[in-house]
Design a binder for these strands. Structure first.
Length: 397
DNA sequence: TCTGGGGTCCTAGGACCC
DNA sequence: TCTGGGGTCCTAGGACCC
């Protein structure tokens, strides 16, 4: 059956949302209209550009570069911090509005949704619906969206990426050749930095070249990924719009340190703090972890990670830290400056699945008490000694 | 004063078993 | 002291997305 799929993409989400929020707080400038960027915290060495205004863009500022590079291109640049609380709020407002049009919405990221409209059009055309959504978002929420329309997700997503902002585009199968095949192959969803040179070496420059290339040759060269991108280039995608959020498959946190650390005890303290954060999130999701994974990044940007199975599925900070510490001991190399420490848990299983087999799933009273307080007063209110230690060492050292 | 943080999925190689 | 092939599990690393 032919599906009716829409992809809704907020134009310049972080910058637009920050702009609206700043004005709501009394600012008289609309930062969308001046040379401005949203940027991570430079003092924490996270100073990279996350969004830029049209004027900043015109001056050559690009997403992902450092604030230092951006300032050289555009010295008058106004820099604003991220405000994820506000972003979440506007994202939820958009989602709520979209729910008036269909029950089948997949929140693909904070600023993108897929809508399956197939059984929700009630005699209207999907284009009429898109026009209405576009208008209402602008008028009621104060920002603009691009909407892509087609019969599957990948085509709808490609369509929403055509000219911006505040536009509606279709990309039906009979339009693929005209609208998509002339684009550079790097524009195709899932083709990133590393794949472009590989494809160019094979003489594949445009999406059309990819579509017309030999599928088995691509599979031989790139495996499953080759099949996937060949299908995308030909507009083939049978994946469903998934409305309800599934449980996460892994949970992790990482931190770039304000300074490179070589000291083992300090790194361990940071690791403990990450384990506490991660295990808290794990318990909130009512999940248990079976694998622990420690990630380190050196001063010169070499990443390495080690993982190991936990003796039994657990969400206890103490149990998990025991494993994390032993993994770290085995990885730690004396005197190598470390830039980033990360910790994640993997192979997650649901608490209730597990409890029938193990009496307590490694639960512990201290974790539960702390979680209760965190729920009541917010995450930062109560911290174990290790977390306080962290804040201090990050600031003082 | 180079280069964030949160995820998912895939692959390759080694260990181990039959 | 040398040898095959299949299967599964585990780990490290790397690609992609936003």
């Amino acid at each position: 059956m032919r599906r009716e799929i829409m992809h809704v993409d907020v134009n310049n989400a972080f910058l637009s949302w920050s702009a609206i929020d700043l004005m709501k707080q009394g600012s008289s400038v609309d930062i969308r209209l001046i040379p401005s960027v949203i940027c991570g915290d430079e003092s924490r060495r996270a100073g990279i550009i996350l969004a830029k205004s049209p004027i900043a863009k015109a001056m050559g500022v690009i997403t992902g570069e450092t604030i230092y590079q951006a300032m050289r291109k555009c010295p008058r640049l106004k820099v604003y911090p991220t405000n994820f609380k506000a972003y979440k709020k506007y994202s939820d407002m958009l989602y709520k509005l979209l729910l008036e049009y269909t029950d089948l919405i997949e929140r693909f990221s904070i600023d993108e949704c897929f809508l399956d409209m197939t059984n929700f059009l009630a005699g209207n055309t999907i284009m009429a619906r898109a026009i209405e959504i576009n208008k209402r978002v602008k008028e009621e929420l104060g920002f603009t969206v691009n909407i892509g329309i087609s019969n599957n997700k990948v085509l709808a997503k490609m369509a929403s990426d055509f000219s911006k902002p505040d536009k509606i585009h279709t990309l039906y199968p009979d339009e693929i050749k005209d609208k998509m095949w002339d684009l550079d192959v790097s524009e195709l969803f899932m083709i990133g930095r590393k794949s472009v040179p590989k494809l160019k070496n094979m003489g594949i420059n445009t999406i059309g070249d990819l579509a017309k290339s030999n599928e088995s040759f691509l599979i031989k060269k790139l495996g499953k990924f080759g099949k996937l991108i060949w299908e995308y280039a030909n507009g083939i995608d049978n994946s469903e719009v998934i409305a309800k959020r599934e449980k996460p498959k892994s949970i992790g946190n990482s931190i770039t340190l304000a300074l490179d650390f070589t000291n083992k005890e300090k790194l361990e303290t940071i690791l403990l703090s990450l384990v506490e954060q991660v295990s808290y999130r794990l318990r909130k999701e009512k999940l248990l972890a079976q694998v622990a994974c420690v990630q380190l990044r050196t001063k010169d940007f070499k990443d390495f990670s080690h993982q190991s199975k936990l003796p039994c599925a657990t969400s206890s900070a103490k149990e998990i830290y025991k494993k994390a510490k032993s993994i770290f001991d085995e990885m730690y190399i004396y005197n190598i400056p470390i830039r980033l420490v990360g910790f994640r848990v993997d192979n997650l299983v649901s608490e209730d699945n597990q409890l029938s087999f193990f009496d307590d799933g490694g639960k512990n009273v201290l974790d539960e008490t702390i979680d209760g307080l965190k729920e009541k007063y917010g995450y930062s209110t109560i911290t174990k000694a290790s977390e306080i230690g962290i804040t201090k060492s990050l600031k003082i050292d």
